[in-house]
Design a binder for these strands. Structure first.
Lengths: 193, 193
DNA sequence: ACTAAATTAGACCAATTGGTTTAATTAGCC
DNA sequence: GGCTAATTAAACCAATTGGTCTAATTTAGT
């Protein structure tokens, strides 16, 4: 039957709070309150706030990887169209989310990437896992002549995904999808053959 | 002769602290300590921490505008080469800075852009001032046939500068200029005619 | 020299920060 | 049923948060 509280719930709620409000702006107490768990339970599950951040990053990384694969391994579309549908979905979801947070990995990278070694490494590792999935799709597109082959697939994959992070920065202050849409249009124009 | 403390020093030190450590991670007390000023003076100059953030944003915005113009109005280079030299400089400076903070405007946009209306608007306003300067240079480049004209100059300007923000996110976790360099190479390859 | 306003100084405030501790309770296993 | 380990619960901690307050000092204008 298990105990009263389960880690998954704490991770879920913590992920959303930190993704939308930032790392230093969300206290342990706030997470505890939202989860309705006492402090003892939290520190039974997690050593420190830093470790907690790494755990939600890894969890977010794994789940997102599966979601990315759901789009990029879909053989009913051409590789380029798979990529397009993936980023079109990200933009739609951001709008539904009311432009609140964007990607947890990006949020933590920007806020604590330079300050905290463990969080930085965890964020980077998970990012590179995504890049591998994206690069495979890019390579397929290159082989089918849909995508430019003037750059290695990993370069294009990083360019694509990090590019979306730049767009998130603009999204957060403009509270609109306009620049996300422009970014999408221009980037796919540039990498299409 | 003036009083003992001057606002400029507080703004300078506050800018650097927040740019490199983030908004919520830097307390008023920390800024006071670094400036060696008492609290009364700080709150005599600035209403709240939020207002202080807006002031350093505006100051950073104005100074950066002048610096951008220093590069982009330099008639000894072609428009495209002016843009290239500007972003090459940004990357070099980031390396010298040990990849610490990147752009204050981007840092604040990402961390508090969605949480704080005043800071968001201030960040966006200053960003758009830069975009205007960059767009003028892009337009010149288009007129001289150096830069693609398949997109409006403002679109290319935003694409350029927001793109560099995505690269900063990667820089902070990798602690290297590698992705900044790749971004530079690819972006200028895409927008060159 | 006098006055009013700006500045300086730092003690003080309630609220919150991340984290510890101790005791009670619960679960799983033999 | 009894034992051990995990979990729950919340009081407690020192340090820090953004911000206020009062009093002393300094400046600029007349």
């Amino acid at each position: 039957m298990g105990y009263k509280h389960n880690i998954e719930d704490i991770l879920d709620i913590g992920t959303e709070l930190i993704r939308t409000n930032g790392y230093h702006n969300v206290g342990i107490n706030q997470i505890l309150k939202a989860c309705a768990i006492p402090k003892g339970s939290f520190y039974n599950f997690f050593e420190t706030k830093e470790h907690f951040a790494c755990e939600i990053l890894n969890r977010y990384g794994e789940r997102s990887k599966k979601m990315i694969e759901g789009f990029l391994l879909d053989k009913t579309l051409t590789p380029l169209n798979r990529l397009k549908s993936f980023y079109a979905m990200i933009i739609d979801v951001s709008e539904e989310d009311n432009y609140a947070g964007g990607c947890l990995l990006n949020t933590l990278s920007n806020e604590v990437g330079r300050l905290n070694d463990e969080i930085a490494e965890t964020a980077n590792t998970n990012f590179l896992v995504w890049i591998e999935v994206i690069a495979n799709c890019v390579l397929e597109g290159q082989q089918q002549g849909e995508i430019i082959d003037s750059f290695p697939p990993e370069y294009i994959a990083e360019y694509l995904h990090a590019g979306s992070y730049g767009a998130f920065s603009r999204m957060k202050v403009t509270r609109s999808r306009t620049y996300l849409d422009n970014w999408y249009e221009m980037t796919f124009n540039f990498i299409s053959k």
